[in-house]
């Protein structure tokens, strides 16, 4: 069984990486979960998982003539398999985003749930590849006009590639914001379900500083509770791992332009 979700937002600062890891940890209670930092231009996941010094990262897997196996970039952390991306600009420039599909295909063969932490942008091929490759997207939103507007754009891009929305997650909600009312209104435009409304929390920053996912650093925090709620509301569809892997492999993604 495998389903690949791209966790996307369109706009930066919505807490996408925090959300990806929190959903991943919560889902890992029921599934075998692999989290991939597909934001190859602005890697972030490694800082949230204490993998700042990781020797091998996704960048090394995206080289045309790579000399390491995919498994060398997979780290067991916090009950998940984590594939971090490096932060070197040179490595980013020599990486071929088109090779992501092969990497994802290989990882998909051996896990239940794949979460792709996707770039907060739509302006390049490497930025859209995660939503092209994923089965469905999870849209991380803040209850603000720019975030909703960008979230709608991501959703339309994804739909253009046949990638539907599994759910939306409202993150970093302040106490004075009536997120439920916004979520009710937004549900008319977004596919899937409203997974949860996650309150803004100081614990998120503390977790980031500690190099740990929120659910490991502050499991009793209200934000952590909300992420558990979100993971429970996400209906992971049973798929055929081999089928998914084949689909990724056969995706006609030519060399970069």
């Amino acid at each position: 069984m495998v389903e690949a979700f791209a966790v996307a937002s369109g706009k930066g600062g919505t807490g996408k990486t925090t959300s990806t890891l929190a959903l991943g940890m919560a889902l890992a209670e029921r599934y075998d979960v692999t989290v991939i930092d597909a934001d190859t231009g602005m890697a972030n996941l490694l800082f949230h998982t204490g993998l700042d010094d990781a020797d091998v990262t996704l960048h090394d897997l995206l080289l045309a003539e790579r000399d390491v196996p995919v498994s060398a970039a997979v780290y067991d952390r916090f009950g998940m398999s984590v594939v971090p991306c490096g932060t070197s600009l040179t490595a980013f420039e020599s990486a071929d985003p088109g090779l992501l599909r092969d990497v994802v295909a290989e990882l998909a063969a051996d896990t239940d749930v794949l979460l792709l932490d996707s770039p907060a942008a739509l302006g390049s091929k490497s930025a859209v590849l995660p939503i092209v490759l994923a089965d469905r997207i999870v849209v991380v939103l803040q209850p603000t006009v720019p975030s909703l507007s960008d979230g709608l754009k991501v959703q339309e891009y994804a739909r253009s590639y046949g990638t539907e929305t599994a759910g939306v997650l409202f993150n970093r909600a302040r106490p004075d914001e009536d997120v439920d009312a916004v979520a009710d209104q937004a549900a008319r435009y977004f596919g899937g379900t409203t997974l949860a409304s996650v309150p803004e929390s100081d614990a998120v920053r503390a977790a980031r500083r500690a190099g740990e996912p929120l659910l490991a650093h502050a499991p009793g925090d209200p934000a952590a509770d909300a992420f558990h709620e979100a993971a429970a509301a996400l209906d992971v569809r049973a798929g055929d791992a081999a089928g998914v892997a084949d689909r990724f492999r056969s995706a006609v993604v030519p060399d970069r332009p």
Partner: peptide, 20 residues
């Protein structure tokens, strides 16, 4: 966004991936 997604897909060689 739909129109932009289509024109960019052409630019990036992803037209074949469009769900059309």
């Amino acid at each position: 966004a739909r129109a932009e997604a289509r024109s960019r897909a052409a630019e990036w060689g992803l037209t074949g991936q469009l769900d059309d």
